[in-house]
């Protein structure tokens, strides 16, 4: 389905539950790294996927991307994209290293990033699940660290979501020392999932 058919009220509702889910996700991240994490959401919008790439950066920009599928009553795909620098910083934060230590991604660092995706998505989904009473679970994470265009198009193709608009929420995470983690969060739902979410919210 296309999000064009949603009313402004429904779009707002969808944005709102995503924001709540993200808030919950950031709280979990803070617990994981045992440090305070603040979050800003400068923008959120529905976009066709070509525009989604342009919003995040250039086609050849280095990014880290974690993606998980959501199964259950409102199935879809969740993905987080962090710019290259932020990906390395996240690894430092998670492993308790001084920021700037990690220079490239080894197996350990990749696992760390996947784990962050797991935690973020798990708490995102459980917040929405609690709010709506819908049954939702997540699968194991996938990870890529390469050109933005290559990473995103491959994922959209694998998900069979090349014709649709996507909910994009730009997120900025930062610690007390203002270390910035710049990321984008994307939610792609399967046909019918939005209707079920709306119905569960009484809209």
């Amino acid at each position: 389905m296309s999000y064009r058919n949603l009313s402004p009220v429904e779009l707002d509702a969808l944005r709102e539950i995503s924001n709540i889910g993200l808030g919950n996700a950031v709280t979990s991240l803070a617990q994981l790294i045992n440090r305070r994490v603040n979050m800003r959401v400068p923008r959120s919008s529905f976009l066709p996927f070509e525009e989604m790439i342009e919003l995040v950066g250039g086609y050849e920009e280095l990014v880290g991307c974690v993606s998980l599928r959501v199964l259950g009553d409102a199935p879809g795909i969740v993905l987080y994209i962090f710019d290259g620098e932020s990906t390395l910083r996240l690894v430092d934060m998670l492993l308790g290293l001084p920021v700037g230590t990690t220079g490239e991604l080894d197996e350990m660092a990749r696992s760390a990033i996947k784990e962050i995706g797991n935690v973020l998505t798990g708490s995102f989904v459980s917040a929405i699940s609690m709010m709506t009473g819908l049954n939702m679970i997540t699968t194991v994470p996938l990870f890529a660290f390469d050109m933005l265009g290559a990473v995103l198009t491959s994922l959209m193709v694998a998900a069979g979501r090349v014709e649709e608009q996507v909910l994009v929420i730009e997120t900025e995470l930062f610690q007390e020392d203002e270390t910035l983690i710049k990321g984008h969060f994307f939610l792609l739902t399967e046909p019918g999932a939005i209707e079920r979410l709306m119905a569960a919210l009484g809209l």
């Binding site: 599928r69 990749r110 194991v140 996938l142 990870f143 890529a144 994922l155 694998a158």
Partner: peptide, 17 residues
């Protein structure tokens, strides 16, 4: 025709490339 993602979710690793 690359395989960009690594992970254990075989449903998403369809090797479309």
């Amino acid at each position: 025709g690359a395989q960009m993602f690594s992970g254990l979710d075989s449903k998403m690793i369809l090797n479309i490339g």
